[in-house]
């Protein structure tokens, strides 16, 4: 464990609490892509199956349980409790265009040809692109509530912090995970546009609005 990874994970935790806070305080999931949230639940479930047969640490175990549980809870909130506030007509990204290529990539790039390892690879590739339905929705509506942008910023920060973590691990542990690093770089790159608007507008106290 190093500070980059710790703060990355904490930022990931924070993003989930911000999202829950957004839903509970506005009593609405307006502006949140159900598809992205469903993809994250898929990512956590397919990646953290090792929870049942592999012990890494108490930290690792607790976080895995938390990510699976919170992502399922968010799906429940969106699908049942606050269902009327979710507008599927603006959440139109075709997720099959993401799932298909991720299956192919997992079959091509993995560390071992076994079910858990293939699912692990699949989850890594899927996580890299899972934010796309959300960003697509943002692009379509052209604006977002400030709290939603804080959620996205915390999620992006988590990914960004994993990059110095990998550099650090390369030098201190001689450890490289090419699949995670490649997918992680792509994932972080997807946030660059968002970060630009977040830093130049939201953090200056303005509303998140995309130029027409």
């Amino acid at each position: 464990m190093n500070l980059f990874r710790l703060f990355g994970d904490l930022s990931h935790l924070a993003s989930i609490f911000i999202l829950l806070q957004k839903i509970q305080s506005t009593r609405s999931c307006r502006g949140i892509s159900f598809k992205t949230q469903a993809l994250y639940a898929t990512v956590f479930i397919t990646r953290y199956l090792d929870l049942f047969y592999e012990w890494v640490s108490l930290y690792n175990f607790t976080m895995k349980v938390f990510f699976i549980a919170s992502s399922c809870y968010i799906l429940y909130l969106m699908k049942y409790k606050y269902r009327p506030t979710h507008d599927p007509s603006i959440d139109t990204f075709r997720v099959e265009y993401l799932l298909g290529p991720c299956v192919v990539l997992a079959l091509l790039f993995h560390y071992k040809f076994s079910i858990p390892e293939l699912l692990w690879s699949f989850s890594i590739f899927l996580e890299a692109v899972a934010i796309l339905p959300q960003l697509f929705m943002l692009q379509r509506t052209g604006e977002a509530e400030t709290i939603t942008t804080h959620y996205l910023a915390a999620l992006g920060a988590y990914r960004a912090l994993y990059i110095p973590n990998w550099i650090y691990r390369y030098f201190t542990e001689d450890m490289v995970d090419p699949i995670a690093v490649t997918a992680g770089l792509v994932q972080t790159a997807l946030y660059l546009d968002f970060f630009y608007v977040y830093f130049t507008k939201v953090l200056q106290g303005q509303k998140f609005e995309l130029p027409a």
């Binding site: 560390y111 542990e173 450890m175």
Partner: peptide, 10 residues
């Protein structure tokens, strides 16, 4: 180090 890294990251 390239052979099967442990999946200890989240």
């Amino acid at each position: 180090p390239l052979a099967h890294p442990e999946h200890d990251e989240l």
